[in-house]
């Protein structure tokens, strides 16, 4: 009996400590030191929140860079991947379809090697990044849709390069570029897409 009472008491002790005090303490520190990040790295434009830098959005019009395929249709509730195995016929067909779609959509040569992240769905369904190569392959199409002149187009290429994040500390992870950030640059009213970062 004594053991049972101790069990209950110490369980309550740990519930308060690790279930309430600890998360509140971390929240307190986080909200003071990194408020924007702790609140989801939200992006505000014209006083409206248009999304999170970390969560990908669907882009299917010709004037924007396209995100990676998402098994959850870019709906974060809930996040997830396709969970298709490599011998799943559905996956094989999807990859073939996406390849054709990417080439047609961007009016590329049919022999173009499409970067694999544009053919395969991400793990979270919310992957905000694509490779620099995948972004550059879309520049011609966007420039054409937006009636860019040669200089504007060159600026767009430069913008993609400026926004490419190298591996962190040059060794960790992969080189990547954030699709939402690129598209926000495209929408800037002055069309001055040379980034002065």
């Amino acid at each position: 009996m004594k053991t049972i009472i101790i069990s209950i008491k110490i369980f309550l002790f740990f519930t308060i400590l690790t279930g309430a005090v600890y998360p509140l303490l971390v929240t307190g520190i986080a909200q003071v030191v990194f408020p924007e990040k702790a609140n989801g790295s939200l992006i505000v434009r014209d006083n409206k929140i248009i999304g999170s830098e970390l969560i990908s959005q669907q882009f299917d019009t010709k004037k924007y860079f396209t995100s990676r395929p998402s098994a959850v249709s870019y709906n974060p509730l809930p996040s997830g991947g396709s969970n298709y195995g490599l011998t799943n016929l559905k996956l094989k067909n999807l990859v073939a379809e996406r390849k054709k779609q990417f080439i047609d959509f961007n009016q590329l040569d049919s022999l173009t090697v499409v970067p694999s992240e544009m053919l395969f769905a991400s793990a979270s369904g919310l992957d905000p990044h694509i490779s620099q190569k995948a972004a550059l392959l879309q520049v011609d199409r966007i420039a054409k849709t937006r009636n860019f002149n040669t200089i504007q187009k060159q600026n767009l290429v430069q913008s993609v390069k400026n926004h490419t994040e190298p591996p962190q500390f040059l060794v960790l992870g992969e080189e990547r570029v954030n699709v939402l950030i690129l598209n926000l640059e495209l929408d800037k009213p002055d069309r001055n897409i040379t980034n002065n970062k």
Partner: peptide
């Protein structure tokens, strides 16, 4: 958190994406 992991008690954020679709971002 410094890298971008969320830590708050806010309600889920409903946003309008660049293309104008609604998206609910969990917190």
């Amino acid at each position: 958190v410094g890298q971008g992991v969320v830590q708050n008690f806010k309600t889920y954020e409903t946003v309008q994406t660049l293309q104008g679709a609604p998206q609910i971002i969990p917190m």
